[in-house]
Structures are given as structure tokens and as C-alpha cells.
Design a protein around this nucleic acid. Structure first.
Lengths: 183, 183
DNA sequence: CTCCGATATGCCGACTAGACATATGACTAG
DNA sequence: CTAGTCATATGTCTAGTCGGCATATCGGAG
């Protein structure tokens, strides 16, 4: 019995809030609730993780005939809940990993027109502000549910994270002006 | 002729500073200089990227008999430099992606002892401070070379990034205390 | 009336990480 | 003095992951 990858536990974690979800629901909800601080696994990934979780007995599913087309709803099993708790308790926490495309571009700044570079960084700054606003709105919507306290904490964190990101970009743009002489 | 993945351009970018480097050198230098804001491609990845870059004519190499064992030094070709410039100018910049393990743990906070969770977040806080200090030291070492201005800008950004990360963790730990009643 | 987007699932190819394999000299702990 | 570990240097192999495409149907926009 080999250890499961983190993605498996993340998907099982989505199920651990007690709702029955289809693969499609799961993806949408993952994008919304974990998307601010963690990756968004692709649909294909989610569907194959669900099959794996079911095969090891951590999840169970049933076919539900829908209006448009049938779907399969998954729920966590008691065995799955126990395994998830054990994992959260014992597994080492890997450090945060960042893949920052705009910074990579800045690092290669000697290859580009300063004006073009500034455009790129400015677009990133605006995106950060959009995400901050979205996180702020999600906090407001979620904090009325006391059982979502931990997701709310991460949303508050995300709001600050994207505010910081926006402010760093503003400072970086100003610094870039002094370096390239505003040309 | 299909487009190359970003990693190819990142490796070519490492060569664009004009030095001749072995795959081993490249990995070490990538860890040091881009590691703060971008992933660190594995050795296997780097070696296969170098072979690909040479096969499309963007890099050239020569065998150098070393003291201990021979090594192969790569350099960028004029065609590679032009292709890299075109890429930097034209390719869309993908948004930054974060994979934040400690936040994932907080999101699943209902599964864990509050004390254990606090340990995890505190360890992450200390790691952020370490990285901030390292980035600050690298800024000092690199800013004496005027041709490294863009890498220096990204290092200054990284110093602020990890300072912000540290401060957010401090605030999050305080907030967690009020939520879980310091138990 | 046709095209597009949302629902819902899944395959396939390409990309990526990480463990391991190999070879050797230099340091270092018992 | 000798075994173990580290650094150099390159590479194979497995498993994990992403993104594009395929499929099917319904409702709304133009």
C-alpha cells in the first residue's frame, strides 16, 4: 500500500466537509475555495483521483439520474475520514512553492523593451487587485457560516496576500522607472 | 515546429547572461537565482532541456575534459538569442501559481489538533524569515554588478515577498488564537 | 436557427518531479 | 586508517500532473 499523493488528500479534504459532490462540482468548488492558495487540479485529475479514492475505500459513490445527464455523486467514508485525519496529523508539510511568470519576465528584463515589461507587470498588478477583491467578497459570503471558520481564515489570508502582491508590484514599477529612466 | 515549454525558455534564459555552463552548474545557479520566485527544475529536466535546445540549434556545447570527470559546457547561439527575445516579446505571461502546503493544512483545520496546526504554521513562519534573510544577503552580493540589475530587482522583490509572508503568518497565528481560544 | 456556454465525464499526449544508478576524489568521524 | 558521506557530473525510469480534445445535451443570445 503506497502512500497517496497530496492531491488525493486535497480531494478527500473537499469531501470531508460532509457534502456529496460530483467530479464537476468538486472542480468548481476547488477553484473557488482553494484556488487562492493552492493549485487547481484539472478535471481529468479529479476524476481519476475519485476513482482511486473509491478503489481504496476512502470514498463511495452512487449514480444519480439527472435532468440533463446522469452524474455520479461521491462522499467520504468513515475509513476515508480516519485516513485523512491520520495524514493531517502525521504527514510532513512541504514548503510553499511559487511559479511566478511575471517575475521570470522581469528576471529576463535585459531581453525586452522596458515599456513592454512595464505593461506585463501592470497587468499582473491589476490581476492581483481583482483577486484581492474576490477574496474579500468570499470572506463576507462565507463568514456567516460558523462551520466554515477554517476556510474563512484562509480567505482572509488570501485577501491580505493579494493586497501585498498588488503593493509589491506598485513599488516594483516605481523602482523600474528609476532604473530604466522612465523611457 | 511546435512551441517549446516555458522551462526551455527559462533554461535558455539562464544561458543568456553569456556564461558557458554545464547542466550541473545550471541547476545550482537556477536554485540560487530564480529559486525565490520560480520552481527549480530537476537535474533530469535540465539535462533533457539542454539536449533539446541543442537539437533545435538554440544552444551549442563542447566536451571539456575535467580533473575528475569530463563535463559538457553549453552556451547560447545567436539563433537561440533571437528566439528567446521573440518569445519574451510575444508570448503571453501566465499568471502566478501558488502551491501553499501550510495553507492547505489550515484550510483542513477541522481535522487537526489546534496545537499541531500552530506548530506547522510557526515552522512556516520561521522558514519565510530564513528565506527573507537569504534574499537580503543575495541582494547585497549581487548589486555590485551593474549588469545584474534585473536579477537584483527580483531579489529585492523576493526579500519583500518573504517579509510579507512572515508577517502574514504572525497575524494568522494571532487570529488562530482568538478562534481556538488558545487551547 | 445556429452558435456558444454550462453541465458532466473521460482519454491521451506531453510535461515534470523525484528516486535511484553510476563513477570518483576529498574530507571526516570513529 | 578506513568507512561513510559529500560534491561533482550525467542520466534512466516511474509516477504524477496539465491541457487539449471528444462526447452529449440543454438553454439562451444573436
Amino acid at each position: 500500500m503506497k502512500p497517496l499523493p497530496i492531491t488525493s488528500w486535497a480531494v478527500l479534504g473537499l469531501l470531508s466537509f460532509g457534502r456529496e459532490l460530483s467530479g464537476y462540482d468538486l472542480k468548481k468548488w476547488a477553484d473557488q475555495s482553494m484556488g487562492f492558495f493552492y493549485w487547481s487540479p484539472s478535471y481529468s485529475q479529479i476524476y481519476s483521483e475519485l476513482r482511486r479514492l473509491e478503489s481504496v475505500g476512502y470514498a463511495a459513490s452512487e449514480e444519480v439520474p439527472g435532468d440533463i445527464r446522469a452524474k455520479r455523486l461521491y462522499r467520504i467514508t468513515p475509513a476515508g475520514e480516519e485516513a485523512l485525519r491520520d495524514w493531517a496529523d502525521a504527514a510532513p508539510v512541504e514548503p510553499a512553492v511559487l511559479k511566478h511568470g511575471p517575475m521570470l519576465r522581469l528576471w529576463l528584463g535585459h531581453l525586452q523593451e522596458p515599456a513592454r515589461l512595464r505593461e506585463t507587470l501592470h497587468a499582473h498588478r491589476d490581476l492581483a487587485e481583482q483577486r484581492r477583491a474576490q477574496a474579500a467578497a468570499d470572506v463576507t459570503a462565507a463568514e456567516v457560516h460558523p462551520e466554515w471558520i477554517f476556510p474563512v481564515l484562509t480567505l482572509r489570508w488570501a485577501e491580505q496576500y493579494y493586497a501585498d502582491e498588488r503593493d509589491r508590484m506598485d513599488r516594483m514599477l516605481a523602482e523600474l522607472d528609476t532604473v530604466t529612466g522612465k523611457d
